[in-house]
Design a protein around this nucleic acid. Sequence first.
DNA 1: CCTCACTTGTTGTAACTGCAACATTGGGAG
DNA 2: CTCCCAATGTTGCAGTTACAACAAGTGAGG
Lengths: 221, 221
Amino acid sequence: MTEYLEILHRSPLFRGIEAKELSALLDCMGARPRRIKKGDTVLAAGERATHLGIVLAGRVQVSRLKADGQRIVMGEIRPGQLFAESFACAQAEALPVTAIAGADGAVLLLDSGRLSAPCSAACAFHGRLISNLLSVLAHKNLALAGKVEILSGRTIRERLLAYLEDLCLKAGKNTVTVPFDRQALADYLCVDRSALSRAIGQLREEGVLEVDRGKFTLKQL
Amino acid sequence: MTEYLEILHRSPLFRGIEAKELSALLDCMGARPRRIKKGDTVLAAGERATHLGIVLAGRVQVSRLKADGQRIVMGEIRPGQLFAESFACAQAEALPVTAIAGADGAVLLLDSGRLSAPCSAACAFHGRLISNLLSVLAHKNLALAGKVEILSGRTIRERLLAYLEDLCLKAGKNTVTVPFDRQALADYLCVDRSALSRAIGQLREEGVLEVDRGKFTLKQL
DNA sequence: CCTCACTTGTTGTAACTGCAACATTGGGAG
DNA sequence: CTCCCAATGTTGCAGTTACAACAAGTGAGG
């Protein structure tokens, strides 16, 4: 656990909580890190949504499977970030999404009940924790709204460019590495993979885009 | 204000707070109801996101205008429900959405700073308020995820049916009244209005759907 | 070096969409 | 009742997409 304290301390969930206090807090909540290997299912759709997850190392991909077999990739979670927290906080009956490890690493699963229930030992930080969680949920909301904006594009071209521009804006440069392979990127944009390939090819031919594996460079911004 | 206390008391934000305490709480936060007329701009895009809104009567439509002029209708807010709360809680620089009254009514705007800052008089209920807000944000997240699922449909037909099935599921019957006119429904589904009309016509001809103005009946579920 | 599995790119085609322009409908004001 | 206007439906068309099937590229392991 010790090796991950630094990551946890930087997590938005524990902002403002001292490292030594953090350790006690985690003990109190019975948190144990769990190692994951690429491809492992961290949380499966259908489970009761009792726990929220924090990525300690590696990355976790959250996706949803529709009845017709279509997959929607909701996003990729990086170290320090949370996943499944909305479902846990909303006390959803069944988890509608699946979380899969995108690389070897580790996660921490926290019982949301224990997180929000008053705990005699750690009550001093409890308010802070809830307040942080509020902020995390709010930002997650903004991210989701951003995803809606991407999906509002009516052509693959529009959606891809909206996504890449968003990434570039956040990265502060015009070259970004997409954390998905082509199929996952297509599922993230909710389009067909081969059609996405065609759109990428066109954009490259037009000189709008430069592509090298997962590295995209926007030539004009 | 008194006329709206009942609505507020039933709002998820004030769950578990007694009616008489509620009144004091509102005073303490300096909340004043504001009457709105159909078409009024309640919150404008670009404003600092300092306040969250609660609909007291009527309805409020939240939409976002893209750079290319395309409008995205995010949703319709009904009495007791909140809007713009994510932006307020995330302390967003500028509001990315616009809130417009869809009918005559009234709203309450609450300063999110005052909501989360400790208040000597109402501190007893403060924790409750934050906890409720957490739940509201979590549920809003689920709603947004639902919208993403709707937008993941690759044809207008799929999106419309996903939306209507969702409404029917929530209503518990197979006849629902859509709170949008055709243009707003198209903007909600992020498709062209005339193409939406065409899709509705096809579904009706096939006997899948019965339509009367804004009233849709799913013949087969 | 080769094989094999997996990822990515390519292409033809039918179907669907966005767009624009126009027809129709329905309800409110006078 | 009639007029008027906004909402809704209709249609032709060019462009885009999903789908399927296949080709090319890539990397790990023997």
